[in-house]
């Protein structure tokens, strides 16, 4: 059983960082949805609020879509990389888990 790698190849590193982005995104989304109402409940209640809300909502959907596309590509690239390196075939989750601690 090989030791968990301490450092990753470029593609796996990219995938891991995109994964971090996927973790941060919901937190940012929640903050962005909640804070304006706490600060300016009156200004946010009518047309301005509606435009801001739906505008941000659309941006959020778009960014999730882009992020997921990037993640799928990064996954494929990371898989290809491990295959090239002749490492354990990275198709199963075990591989993904095994190097979870690496940066």
């Amino acid at each position: 059983m090989p030791e968990r790698p301490l450092f990753l190849e470029r593609a796996s590193f990219r995938r891991r960082r995109l994964g971090d982005a996927a973790r941060v995104l919901p937190v940012l989304a929640a903050i962005a949805m909640l804070l304006p109402v706490w600060w300016l409940p009156k200004a946010f209640s009518f047309a301005t609020g509606m435009l801001a809300l739906f505008g941000f909502w659309a941006v959020l959907i778009l960014s999730v879509r882009l992020l997921h596309r990037a993640l799928i590509r990064a996954d494929a690239a990371a898989l290809a990389e491990t295959a090239v390196l002749g490492d354990a075939p990275g198709t199963d989750d075990a591989t993904v888990r095994n190097d979870r601690d690496a940066l």
Partner: peptide
């Protein structure tokens, strides 16, 4: 209640932005 109705949809939206890891 005006815009408050949107909370019913915004909560799930936030949950689904975390779909990848959650």
């Amino acid at each position: 209640s005006g815009l408050e109705f949107a909370t019913i949809y915004i909560g799930p939206t936030i949950v689904f932005t975390g779909a990848w890891w959650g």
